[in-house]
């Protein structure tokens, strides 16, 4: 059986977008192309900005992914948990689709007797362990995120440890937004391992622009590049630059 590749965008942000397309619409666009959008909202302890939180939830709902609001301290565990659970969710979605095709009507995993459910879950676990995964990480580096970026870095290194302990292959790429000339700024091209990103977030954008929607749009583009790259492996740099 040929397994496909799970594709995810992982958005780490702390607040409301204020420029360009509606981020939820862009997330829906990603979902249509088989890319799940997960959002981690990093908030201050005193923050209770409802509209920001609603935006975070909407993006994940529209993008077929998972959202989680966290305080900076719990970031590491949350990043890997959200990525994992989104993988399981996607795999279960596919399996439920298959079950419906076989069993008809609205049968899903949850309608099976516990014994059969257990068997299906074994398959889900197995797939989650062995499937290939591509994650495009989008980090909001607007001024208010500055104090959180060291923790974000650590969380991403930790994510790499977790995912590379799986049997399947991983590819990561890292973008920050806002960028200088575009919505995003490439920090790291597709790579199987996040090894050293120690000085990656040095250039911080100032000003009040948070173009979350356009950033998701650009993140979607990076995936089409990976599929082309797999055919033209020598010409990485050309395709990575040509997307804009």
């Amino acid at each position: 059986m040929k397994k496909g590749t799970l594709k995810q965008i992982l958005l780490i942000t702390d607040g409301c977008s204020n420029q360009g397309e509606d981020p939820a619409a862009m997330a829906a666009l990603a979902k249509e192309q088989g890319i799940a959008v997960n959002v981690i909202g990093v908030i201050h302890d005193h923050q209770s900005d409802d509209s920001g939180i609603r935006e975070i939830e909407d993006i994940a709902l529209a993008g077929g992914g998972i959202s989680q609001i966290v305080h900076t301290k719990q970031l590491s565990q949350t990043v890997q948990m959200v990525t994992r659970q989104a993988m399981t969710q996607t795999i279960k979605g596919v399996i439920n689709q298959e079950l419906q095709n076989i069993l008809g009507d609205h049968e899903t995993m949850e309608d099976l007797p516990p014994e059969k459910r257990g068997k299906v879950m074994e398959v889900v676990d197995e797939l989650g362990e062995t499937v290939d995964l591509e994650v495009c990480i989008l980090v909001d580096t607007s001024a208010s995120m500055k104090s959180k970026l060291p923790t974000v870095q650590e969380a991403l290194l930790d994510l790499s440890i977790s995912l590379n302990s799986r049997m399947g292959n991983n590819q990561f790429c890292l973008y920050s937004f806002p960028g200088k000339r575009h919505a995003t700024n490439k920090l790291m091209a597709w790579t199987p391992q996040i090894d050293s990103i120690s000085s990656v977030f040095t250039k911080l954008a100032s000003g009040g622009i948070t173009p979350t929607g356009p950033a998701i749009r650009e993140a979607i583009q990076t995936f089409s590049k990976t599929s082309r790259r797999s055919f033209l492996s020598d010409d990485e740099s050309f395709y990575e630059e040509s997307g804009y």
Partner: peptide, 23 residues
């Protein structure tokens, strides 16, 4: 041989930098 999905930082080898999370 599979990856550890559930862990607690203080007791986790990966957290302290002593290795991966492959079981």
């Amino acid at each position: 041989g599979r990856s550890v999905k559930e862990y607690t930082e203080f007791f986790d080898r990966g957290y302290w930098g002593f290795g991966h999370r492959k079981a």
